[in-house]
């Protein structure tokens, strides 16, 4: 594995290896000295052409805990605003000596372009490209879910896949790279995925994805899923009206107080709530649900550092020729 561009091309073995490595990284994050010397002397560049808080900070923390040097690059305030191309930016990073480039870009395929051309030799990690993929988010979701399931079952999580698990992903599937990465990864790991959204927020060709589609959240909850993943309504990507009003969206597809009350039913007693963040409280999720003990949101953030440490370690530690 030289790059991490999408979850679609990960084999079950690759995915479990990343999750198992993340499990060991998580143990380091619980220690007094939260630092490993594995990537000492290596340089990680965070190349962010789009706004991000948790993903950038998470990658930065991950790289630093592995003793790598981190250079943060935000497109705002850089030469990109003067019209520099991706190629020139990338070659500048290569000249500086980047060993890995973590890239977030509004254009789908930008990380792929960086990885497949001869512009740079560094390992490329996709940190979200347009509405295409966000593989590390899906990996941390799978990691969080795997830990939860093994805790409920009382079995060790290391080495396990997600066979038999059922995940419902609710909301703006159309604009969500998180949903796409999760559909590929969770099904690769053996889980069953149901997408729930208004018909206008489902992408063209969704019937060919390896998942079920529903328009009714209550119906999906009646199926007693192991996890419900709420997605943010991405207002910044919406240049047309996809639903009549936010109040209607919230009532039909949001996890409001009334719907969250159903989580106390016996068949939903082990169901957890996932959210990739940032949350829009009151729209797709109510504060009661977001702050409840079912919500794994903060655990997802913590696990994100472990998963990203695992990814950086697995991509960067090998010698160049075997990477």
């Amino acid at each position: 594995m030289k790059h991490l561009l999408s979850t679609r091309d990960l084999t079950p073995g690759d995915a479990i290896r990343i999750l198992d490595t993340a499990e060991e990284m998580a143990a380091v994050n619980d220690r007094e000295v939260r630092k490993l010397p594995a990537l000492r002397g290596r340089t990680v560049v965070n190349l962010f052409f789009e706004d991000s808080t948790r993903t950038r900070i998470s990658f930065e923390a991950a790289a630093k805990r592995l003793s790598a040097d981190v250079i943060n690059f935000a497109a705002k305030g850089s030469s990109v605003s003067k019209g520099e191309s991706l190629k020139d930016t990338a070659q500048t990073l290569e000249a500086i000596g980047a060993d890995a480039v973590v890239i977030r870009h509004s254009a789908a395929g930008a990380p792929h372009r960086l990885a497949m051309t001869d512009w740079i030799n560094a390992a490329v990690v996709n940190a979200g490209d347009g509405t295409h993929e966000h593989p590390t988010q899906a990996l941390l979701d799978a990691f969080t879910l795997r830990r939860h399931l093994s805790k409920v079952a009382g079995t060790p999580s290391t080495g396990a896949d997600l066979a038999g698990a059922h995940v419902v992903i609710v909301g703006d599937i159309l604009h969500s790279r998180v949903a796409r990465s999760n559909v590929w990864l969770l099904t690769t790991l053996g889980a069953r995925v149901t997408l729930v959204a208004p018909p206008t927020l489902l992408p063209f060709g969704v019937e060919q994805w390896p998942c079920a589609v529903s328009y009714d959240l209550d119906e999906a909850l009646a199926d007693a899923p192991d996890a419900v993943m709420m997605l943010r309504v991405q207002a910044e990507r919406m240049n047309a009206s996809y639903f009549p009003s936010t109040a209607e969206y919230s009532r039909l597809w949001g996890l409001g107080d009334e719907r969250f009350a159903r989580f106390s039913e016996p068949e939903l007693k082990d169901t957890v709530i996932l959210h990739p963040g940032p949350m829009v409280r009151g729209l797709e999720i109510s504060s009661v649900a977001a702050d409840s003990d079912r919500s794994q949101v903060l655990r997802q953030v913590a696990n994100g550092v472990s998963v990203r440490m695992a990814v950086l370690y697995l991509l960067m530690s090998a010698k160049e020729s075997t990477r």
Binding site: R17, T21, E24, M25, P37, Y313, S317, A318, T322
Partner: peptide, 21 residues
């Protein structure tokens, strides 16, 4: 005690998966 991350030949070997400590 896992020592994978502390090896001095990490960059000269194929990637090793760490074991639990």
């Amino acid at each position: 005690l896992d020592i994978t991350m502390f090896r001095d030949d990490l960059s000269r070997q194929p990637t090793r998966s760490p074991s639990p400590t």
